[in-house]
């Protein structure tokens, strides 16, 4: 089973990378972009029997730092 974990900085946590990308987009002439936040997507291939609780534990113990990041688990197929 494929699982995708989306990790993003919590609202209010400064994202210097996102800000730099935002400036670069403006430099390329793309207007109308009000904000950019850079996150991370992690794809896992796991046993079909893997439970939601196990996936949550993987996220909280390693894949995301919940002090600064939110995560969302998506079962792909």
């Amino acid at each position: 089973m494929k699982v995708r974990v989306h990790v993003s900085l919590k609202p209010g946590v400064l994202d210097p990378q996102g800000r730099a990308v935002h400036h670069a987009l403006e430099g390329l002439g793309f207007g109308g972009v009000s904000d950019v936040r850079v996150g991370r997507s992690i794809e896992l291939d796991v046993a079909d029997a893997t439970s939601d609780a196990q996936l949550k534990e993987m996220c909280e113990k390693l894949l995301a730092n919940t002090v600064i990041e939110n995560y969302r688990i998506e079962r792909v197929a």
Binding site: V13, P16, V67
Partner: peptide
């Protein structure tokens, strides 16, 4: 130490990149 939760908080990318 912060990642191991032995200390509170986290260290982010420097504000000036």
């Amino acid at each position: 130490l912060t990642e191991a939760r032995l200390l509170p908080g986290a260290l982010l990318r420097n504000a000036g990149q």
